[in-house]
Amino acid sequence: MSESPLLSVSKLKVHFPVRGGVFMRQIGAVRAVDDVSFHIGPGETLGLVGESGCGKSTLGKAVVRLLTPTEGSIRFGGREISELSQGTIRPLRREFQMIFQDPMESLDPRMSVRSILEEPYVIHGLGNRAERHQWSDELLDRVGLPKSAAERYPFEFSGGQRQRIGIARALALKPKLIICDEPVSALDVSIQSQILNLLVELQRDFGLSYLFIAHDLSVVKHISDRVAVMYLGKIVETAPAETIYRDPRHAYTKALISAIPATDPKHKREKILLEGDVPSPIDPPAGSAFGHRMSHPRYDETVGMDLSLREIAPGHEVAADPCCVSEEDWKILQKRGTEVSA
């Protein structure tokens, strides 16, 4: 990528301590996010997919520093933000915002929509009363809500409308990046498409970048430029959206895509049924996590091996894991590994 990325995350780790015993000493760690690297360019959408417990929401929260990362670097607009204190990061928060799955939980039920929308301006000391009033009207208009909505309270709105309020609030400070954490998964399909369209239009109009986190692959594919697939705290494959669905290389990505119910009863996909469930991120397997789930014969080789992402084709990276890629791909990945170390 010629342009410098807006957000660049490198070797990020978020571990939560597990305490136990009489003195509540740390006896282990939940490796929610384990050595994750990615970048997002201006105006770009990176989709992040994975099943529950894979660490995708934790990753989203760490990126906007709602959680403090254990290790690694987060560069936003060229500035390292992973170690800034909450005080020094506040002015920067104007530039990155977050939208949540259930806006009912993120909107204060006792505040009118007007005060919800004006709050960011108040916190950052922007505008006078009249200006804030005008800006909040504009925000409502931009997300397709009537002006009369301003004087009402969150409970008076349907799920889709509440999500519009959540989006309006995220837009208030004209951010460059919005982290969308499952923004449409609680909505009915006809409402879901309204919100997806709104997000696409806003991106076009304001040149926003999105980190779009979801478990629904069809939705992610629809809205993203590139997609990263996460499994047990690690990104196992990343590629342009079209490529990852047409030509997935990692065994987990293949299984995930095959599991999407086809919307054409005449062309059902061949299913790759996985055994078991996503393993626990507490004490994950030492080698390839997915190889372990599949009881792959080459699992033992992967213990202690560098399984990080390597480029298999331009813009298409996959974990260098002999359990999870084809024989030919494994040869290419091995060669890439020696090129890098040479």
Partner: peptide, 23 residues
Amino acid sequence: LLASIPTLDTPSKSLLNTIPGMV
């Protein structure tokens, strides 16, 4: 309903069909 679901074949970032109003 059928037209509002994004499928793997709909072009990325195209606008989806919507049903106006609420349920």
